[in-house]
Design a protein around this nucleic acid. Structure first.
Lengths: 162, 162
DNA sequence: AAAATATGTCAACAACGCTGACTTATTTTT
DNA sequence: AAAAATAAGTCAGCGTTGTTGACATATTTT
């Protein structure tokens, strides 16, 4: 199975049979997830390119819109990236007027993050094509089917916070 | 709605209300997809780190195992990255003995790609934790539910090749 | 013989992760 | 009140993986 004939110069042992689902591995899910996520992310990517932003900016704008008033520490915990990595994109979003900071009301060391009007608009503009894609994928599905998808997505995640 | 009081120094207009699913956007799916994919990818990442490889290597090893004998052009078409980007990781995988090249039998300009024994082993090792995760997410789901998930993943993708 | 094709390569750049070290406010602890 | 801890910011450098542009080589097609 897949060894080259002895008279060939290249005698390295290799496989010529494809790896299939037979071995109990769901390659259809593995690949489907890869292609789906790549295409899912490509829509907002195209929009962000115009503003000179990238995916990292997308995530920050998204979560700040989802939870206005969150602290920098909250955001770091959600994104699971380093402070230095976040600082780079957060600074740009603040300087460009998409996000603003307010000193914490109780703890003034904190920087509470809020979306500005443009920040909210951007979040919505980025979500729009993603929503279209989700709607298309859900098309013709029953409520149970959709519930199964949500359950799947939740089950694929590591144990959540709290 | 979310404008600061006039007497405050910081008078930038901002939103303090969270963006919710009310606007017809499936944030649960959007976020679920993000977290699920991130965690899904983290398992193989941890394994690859030991060999000094990254995600790009994972993808190459995966698809070459799935379709032994594929050409470089096939791989580029599947991954949708540039030749130069692929070259970097492919060279490392060949030099490390995970993948081997054979001149095309009909067209000798082609380089047919095959996994070696270690290449196949690596692909399986990387798929294993991902399969575990998928199995966990599918746990307790009906056949119809699982079909719905596959249908969802297919629906999220751009129009496929062929 | 000329043109097209498949692949490889050199160089430079950008986005976005990372580590390590250090500063500034502010709050908590002692 | 002094000391320690905490929240956030910053500087500097590095690694992976994507990009563009230009060019080289072998082989096939025209």
């Amino acid at each position: 199975m897949g060894r080259q004939t002895p008279e060939r110069k290249n005698t390295i042992e290799f496989h010529d049979q494809p790896l299939t689902d037979e071995g109990g591995i769901d390659f259809e899910v593995i690949e489907g997830f890869f292609f789906a996520y790549r295409d899912f992310i490509s829509d907002p990517d195209a929009i962000l390119e115009k503003s000179g932003f990238g995916r990292a900016h997308h995530r920050v704008v998204h979560f700040v819109n989802r939870e206005p008033g969150m602290t920098v520490a909250d955001l770091l915990d959600t994104l699971k990236i380093t402070k230095q990595s976040l600082a780079r994109v957060l600074k740009q979003l603040i300087d460009s007027g998409y996000i603003c900071q307010v000193a914490g009301p109780e703890d003034r060391r904190q920087r509470r993050l809020y979306p500005t009007r443009s920040g909210r608009d951007l979040a919505l503009a980025l979500a729009e094509p993603q929503q279209q894609r989700i709607a298309r994928a859900f098309e013709g599905m029953t409520a149970d089917d959709r519930k199964a998808v949500l359950r799947f997505l939740a089950g694929m995640q590591n144990a959540r916070r709290e």
